[in-house]
Design a protein around this nucleic acid. Structure first.
Lengths: 240, 240
DNA sequence: ATAGATTTGTCCGTATGTATG
DNA sequence: GCATACATACGGACAAATCTA
């Protein structure tokens, strides 16, 4: 791990433990640099992470203030996978595999992001149940050029852990679109909904670090159980 | 404006104009540093902005690739105001003021974020109409210690522009929570909904740069018209 | 109201490490 | 192996904002 990441974790822990209380100022950049035996730029990199994650607010001439940080229920930003969420929140849930098979490239993906008509995709449909009630239906299309097969045992756990730890894929970024839409036939069947009900549909395209497109996923959430939070910073309007 | 912001805008413009085409590599950090007559660190700061805004992807040993990005309908991240969104998307909409009055601090805000029971708030309720149909109901509670009055002409336009340009307030950050919930009486009345209908409720607390809390807002969206997008980067799991 | 000390913001030049082709 | 390009780190300099005496 890099120096600035180690320092970030150390300061984060000090904030969480209360050693740096909420609303207080953490030591100055100069003091921290001396304390950790690094240069000021390294401290500033660590602080940038703290800033982006909502732990501190910096103010020129004043210092860095500890914010009243928060436990997010469903962070949109940062591409947190279902498995990671589950672990963090200790939700006891069951994943059921509805479908896991290799198919030809679906029409709506061909031509976009360099997908050729001759390619194959893994078509994965899973449900997420809590207390025997289906809360989320996840549908994934995964590019076979990148991942040729996903064992069912993996699909029941975390495909992202599999991608990253076993296949050594590096996930780069994703676009996500949220809309509310009428429940599909599958939603109605698996979630026991009525034809007039709505679901929240989160569709995303995921790309590797080298910019190759590798996954399209659609996730349907029950309205009553849908919620997420985020921490946002005001971006300066540069084009003014 | 800072050097790295100017360079950011310049490169962004070059990407948008096609001078740096999608999927191509932009010049190396070294070349850009020479071209702009600045140090490499300054170029890297500008590139970090491009990275965060989804314009490029960097790869060690390779270079920085221009991504095929964009046209976001409703960026959650970055605290973009309704007015800015409207401008960006050329949506012709009408804002109607339902209520704009000074009230005592509402119970649900007292004690949180340093709000005292003796404080006053501006209670603002507005509707956002498109084609004479109410799409969004915005309810704002704005701290009078920070903003003592909002003229109706302003409320019809953009309160954020008023805060920033006229009152010189600097917005720092916000927390946002999204849930789907049953339509309220006001929703039913103003949006012409049925009692069983749902709306998307986005509630947020907004803080100034100096960490003072100054606004709580609740925004109700019609399901059929709700949509937003975001660009997210995978954050490294530091706690692994 | 002013001056000086402190703290963060920006920028530079250099050095070393690591990944890519 | 080699050149190229990005990643990390250091130390220094000055500016701008804030606080205090």
């Amino acid at each position: 791990m890099n120096k600035f990441e180690k320092i970030y974790l150390d300061i984060e822990q000090k904030i969480k433990s209360g050693e740096y209380p909420i609303s207080s100022l953490i030591p100055s950049e100069h003091e921290l640099a001396k304390h950790y035996g690094v240069s000021r730029e390294t401290i500033r990199k660590a602080q940038k992470l703290l800033l982006e994650n909502g732990f501190i607010q910096k103010k020129q001439g004043r210092g860095s203030i500890v914010l009243d940080y928060h436990r997010f229920s469903l962070p949109v930003s940062g591409l947190v996978s279902y498995k990671e969420l589950q672990l963090e929140q200790n939700i006891n849930s069951v994943t059921r595999i509805i479908q896991n098979e290799k198919i030809a490239a679906p029409d709506f993906l061909i031509g976009q992001n360099g997908v050729k008509a001759t390619e194959q995709f893994i078509h994965l449909i899973r449900t997420r149940e809590i207390n025997e009630e289906v809360m989320i239906i996840d549908e994934d299309y995964i590019r076979c050029e990148v991942v040729e097969h996903i064992p069912n045992e993996i699909a029941e756990d975390s495909i992202y852990q599999f991608f990253e730890d076993d296949l050594n894929l590096i996930i780069g970024y994703a676009t996500k679109d949220f809309i509310a839409e009428k429940a599909s036939a599958l939603d109605i069947e698996l979630m026991n909904l009525n034809p007039m009900d709505y679901v929240i549909s989160v569709s995303s395209n995921v790309f590797l670090e080298d910019t190759t497109f590798f996954q399209h996923s659609i996730s349907h959430h029950r309205l009553e159980k849908f919620s997420f939070s985020e921490f946002a910073r005001r971006k300066p309007r540069l084009n003014a």
